[in-house]
Amino acid sequence: MTALLQHVVDAIGLASLYALLALPVALIYGIMGLVNFAHGELIMIGAYGLFIFAALSLPLAIFLMIAVVIVAALLMERSAFRPVRGSTPETLLVTSFAVSFLLQNLALMVFGSRPKSIETPGFLNKAVSVGGIQIEGVTILSVVAATVFIGGLVIFMRRTNFGMAMRAAAEDFTMARLVGIRANAVISGTFAISGAMAGVAAFILVVQGGSAFATMGLAPVIIAFVATMMGGLGSFSGALLGAALLGAGTVAFEVVLPTQLRSSREAFVYGGVLVLLLIRPQGLIPSRKERV
């Protein structure tokens, strides 16, 4: 019983992190039809930001790091994605792929190929025991961060004019512009949100992995892609459901697989996703919206 609960707690922690990764990707796709490959590099930039600001106090370092990532997200949109805005989703996707590769190699040039280790407060990696269940600090952090962001986003989308404009733009971008919503403002705003979420995810990943390296954005972005794809591209709740299933599936495979196969855990998880897609090619919550 305790063992099962332990797995449930682990799965919730992982699913929360995955939701933080998938939500911004789904958000940007919903607004402008871009599946952003370079979201992973925003996370990478955040991790290097923590490395650079390591001498400062942690809250200040995190604050500055998130600010840097938001600026990076805005610059990315302005320089690379705005010129190709309105292209087919395939063109947008391949553009973000080029941006991703460019940033990885810039990071390699600047920081070298060896990971930069980053100290984070020890309590985050320590586990507290609650009735025999071990809960790590970083698990709690993931859950809190995901809850705050998802809850905050829901309130923001429901209660503010900007959130309303985002919802309208996600449904019919041209019509939104026809009622006077500024395309650039909505898209920049969405990128800023995605940057903030990438910054938070970067901190969690640095706590878990202890270092920053040029290709560290890859694994998170694949998770984000698979989660949004499972959910049915363009559906926010689908992306969250995808993240939850992916988190649960990863923990499940970790438990079930024999030791020597555990290092191929992701292969099994993604294999499982492909089997799932065999049954539901349109995703779990298909979005009926046609993008222009």
Binding site: M164, R167, A168, A170, E171, D172, M175, A176
Partner: peptide, 8 residues
Amino acid sequence: GRRIFTTL
């Protein structure tokens, strides 16, 4: 075609 925002 009216194009009202159906999700709003």
